[in-house]
Design a protein around this nucleic acid. Structure first.
Length: 426
RNA sequence: GCCCCGGUGGUGUAGCCCGGUCCAACACGCCGGCCUGUGGAGCCGGAGAACCCGGGUUCAAAUCCCGGCCGGGGCCCCA
């Protein structure tokens, strides 16, 4: 075999495309029901922009190159930054802005289960609403989009960075180690409590407080936090988490899908307060199916006006995988379409005319072009999953009545083209 | 970048541990014949792999050893 596809990429054949398209259309439908408008951005951006918020280390994950004029460009690895750029470039767009996108992104990583080098993200950004009800709208939209495409037994694990940082500071972690400590906490679920405990100790947590911290992280009770002295930032965070839960319950009736989880942190550095990830039970190995949060500084950072923003992104391939694991994909929708088979080469043009007429009437029709004998052609048509075979030969041409074989019932009848069309249209 | 596992026709596998009987087998798929207007079948036939590449051991290697490449999974990070 001469060539194979590049590492970490995938091909989609018609059957899989159909599966994917159904999912994508469901997501799009919900995005639009909430009044979000689609945006399409270039596959590549100036490298500087991509690196701006994420830091140099993310550069390792960017496919980047110099163009012929020596400009440094990079393939986008998420959509939030390109959208921030759009907004920064057009400061007069009426606020609030509601954008959605369904596009591929690229990351240079080692591929494995649930991790590709090219994958699609479907997400939304709500720009210009600083209050927690903006976050609530986005989270509700996320939950309803996932429900719409048939996902079940999932929860949005929400947290607030300010709370996580407040807790860690309270436990004695010095400021410069906060990043590492957050990453350690993030691994609570994957690596277990013992690992986190050990890491926190190494990073300077007071031994006396570690146990209490672990306890709080595990139970994630907001009420307890409210009574602790975590500093004003964290207090704000706790308050807004409480408000978010209330908003989602009272406004959207979605409290069952949300869970406070103080161990959720997320890597991208631009999140300023709320962060969340969607976890699907039964598909844990996939990683999170979707994630998001609030990024109030990013647009200003890329040269725009200060604008609060909140958004989320769904990993399309992971979502499809999770749906597959749940048996929720509508695969193989049964027999479809018509194949028109000329009885022999002499009737090929007649068959083509019949097919064209069917197509004019909105019926998907294929002409048997191989010249294989009728019985073989019928057998092949059956295997390929056609619903009807229309046989065209001398008898049909003379009488004007087509021979139609229902490949599902394996029954045959004579009928005029118009009724073949209406049969097949159903 | 690191760690683990793997690499036999288009696909999935058998064979590898216990070298020769393997010019590599089976199933599915593909093409055709039986069948010149109709057998969702069956039977028959055909195309398609020098067993990832290179080196080594041996009288002899798909089978053992080393290196490389590629793929999958894990770490990390994330969707």
């Amino acid at each position: 075999m001469a060539y194979r596809r590049p590492r970490g990429t995938r091909d989609y054949l018609p059957e899989e495309c159909e599966e994917r398209r159904a999912v994508l259309e469901g997501l799009r439908e919900v995005f639009e029901l909430y009044g979000y408008g689609e945006v399409v951005t270039p596959a590549f951006e100036h490298l500087e922009l991509l690196v701006a918020k994420a830091g140099e280390e993310v550069k390792e994950q960017i496919y980047w190159f110099e163009d012929k004029a020596g400009r440094k460009l990079g393939l986008r690895f998420e959509l939030t930054t390109p959208i921030a750029r759009i907004v920064a470039e057009r400061p007069t767009l009426p606020k609030p802005i509601r954008f959605y996108y369904i596009q591929p992104v690229w990351r240079y990583e080692e591929p494995q289960r649930g991790r590709l080098r090219e994958f699609w993200q479907a997400g939304v950004e709500l720009i210009g609403v600083k209050e927690v009800w903006g976050d609530a709208e986005v989270v509700a939209l996320l939950v309803n989009a996932l429900r719409r495409v048939g996902l079940s037994s999932f929860k949005v694990h929400v947290n607030d960075r300010r709370v996580a940082e407040g807790l860690l500071s309270w436990a004695g972690i010095p400021r410069h180690a906060l990043g590492d400590a957050l990453r350690a906490v993030d691994k609570l679920e994957r690596r277990g409590a013992e690992y986190v405990r050990e890491r926190l100790r190494e990073l300077g947590a007071e031994p006396g407080k570690i146990e209490q911290l672990m306890d709080i992280l595990t139970r994630s009770e907001l009420a307890e936090l409210a009574e602790m002295d975590l500093g004003s930032e964290a207090r704000e965070g706790v308050k807004s988490l409480e408000q978010l839960m209330e908003e989602l319950e009272e406004g959207y009736g979605l409290a069952d899908y949300i869970k406070v989880d103080l161990s959720v942190v997320r890597g991208l550095d631009y999140y300023t307060s709320l962060v969340y990830e969607v976890k699907v039970s039964g598909a844990e190995g996939l990683g999170s199916v979707a994630g998001g949060g609030r990024y109030d500084d990013l647009i200003e950072l890329v040269g725009g006006p200060p604008l609060p923003a909140t958004g989320m992104a769904i990993g399309v391939e992971r979502l499809v995988e999770a749906l597959r694991a749940q048996g929720a994909l509508s695969r193989g929708r049964g027999r479809r379409g018509v194949i028109v088979i000329p009885v022999n080469a002499q009737y090929r043009r007649d068959a083509i005319r019949v097919a064209e007429e069917l197509r004019r009437r909105g019926v998907s029709a294929v002409v048997e072009l191989t010249g294989r004998r009728l019985s073989t052609a019928l057998e092949a048509a059956d295997k390929r999953g056609f619903r009807y075979a229309v046989i065209v030969g001398g008898r049909e041409v003379e009488s004007g009545l087509l021979t139609v074989r229902d490949l599902e019932k394996w029954k045959e009848e004579r009928a005029p083209l118009s009724s073949v069309a209406s049969m097949a249209a159903q």
